[in-house]
Amino acid sequence: MEWLQIVVLAAVQGITEFLPVSSSAHLILVPVLTSWEDQGLAFDVALHLGSLSAVVIYFRHEIWQMIASSLAALRGRGINKDAKLAIWVTLATLPVCIIGFLLRDVISVYMRSTVIIALSLIGFGLLLGYADWKKRGTRSEYQMQLKDVLIIGGAQALALIPGTSRSGITITAALLVGMSREGAARFSFLLSIPVIVLAGGLEAVELLHQPQSVDWLSMAAGTLLSGAIAYLCIHYFLVIIKKMGMQPFVVYRVLFGAWLLWFFHV
């Protein structure tokens, strides 16, 4: 792989995995705007590993507390806020796992058109704007109730529709149930961990059944670049939303969706 291709793909993955702008919408542009060959499944796994490393490192203290508290709860020491958060992350992940498993072929065959991606960008972007403008509250990720978790988990399953954005739809749902901007974003990032593990795991299993030579240098570079960029995105996204909210991302989504409709269908 060319170094420019490695940098561009790592940047696209690192930026769009956690911002509410849809990675699928941006990834369709790479082969359209360049003459590069498909990067291959092995490089996709490397990029996912980079994103996973970024979010795990960024939330390492919270994750450690969740694991330690969950183990303590299993030993009969009671369920504290960290153990409860671990339960909420697990429950909210189940809908996307079940629906993704049942409808994986349908989604990959029938729902990857640029029209669907563009309309999802615009429609769910406007919904995010409404939630941020009208419905945001003050609760953190530690103050959720079961009904909130079920709503957010159900919303995450909508991210299977290309163009929706997993982070975007989960943040939208969290704002609608009364969470703060930062609380919504932090819970969305924590939710990404099991989703990325499962998605990357499926890709890794497929890779084992596709014997091919592996460019280890490209994979290592992609993992490191994707992880570094994703880490910076998480940090600065949490800073930006405190000052400006979600509206800049809403405007970007609407303009980008409109451009996709014009570019591919006019």
Rank of each mutant, 00 (worst) to 15 (best):
L4R: 12
V8M: 04
L9I: 06
A11V: 15
T16D: 02
E17N: 05
P20R: 00
S22N: 01
S22H: 01
S24F: 10
A25H: 11
W36R: 13
E37D: 10
A42M: 05
A42V: 04
A46M: 01
L49P: 03
V56D: 00
I57N: 00
F59W: 00
R60K: 13
W64Y: 13
Q65V: 06
M66A: 06
A68Q: 11
A68S: 14
S69L: 14
R75S: 15
G78V: 06
D82R: 09
A86G: 14
T90R: 10
A92P: 06
L94Q: 08
V96G: 03
D105R: 13
I107A: 10
Y110W: 15
Y110S: 15
S113Q: 12
T114H: 09
T114Q: 13
V115E: 11
L119A: 12
S120P: 06
S120H: 10
I122R: 00
G123Y: 11
A131Q: 07
A131E: 06
K134M: 08
R136C: 03
R139N: 09
R139C: 11
S140N: 13
Q145H: 11
Q145V: 11
G153Q: 01
G163E: 08
T164C: 05
R166Q: 01
T170L: 02
T172L: 12
L176S: 12
V177Q: 03
E182R: 15
E182D: 11
A184G: 09
A184F: 01
R186G: 04
F189Q: 01
L190G: 01
L191S: 01
P194F: 07
G200Y: 06
A204S: 15
V205M: 14
S213N: 13
W216G: 04
G222P: 08
T223V: 13
L225V: 14
S226P: 10
L232N: 02
V239S: 10
K242W: 05
K242I: 00
M244D: 09
M244S: 12
Q247F: 14
P248L: 07
P248R: 02
F249C: 01
V250D: 04
Y252H: 03
Y252F: 13
R253K: 11
F256E: 13
F256Q: 10
W259K: 09
L261S: 03
W262P: 07
H265F: 11
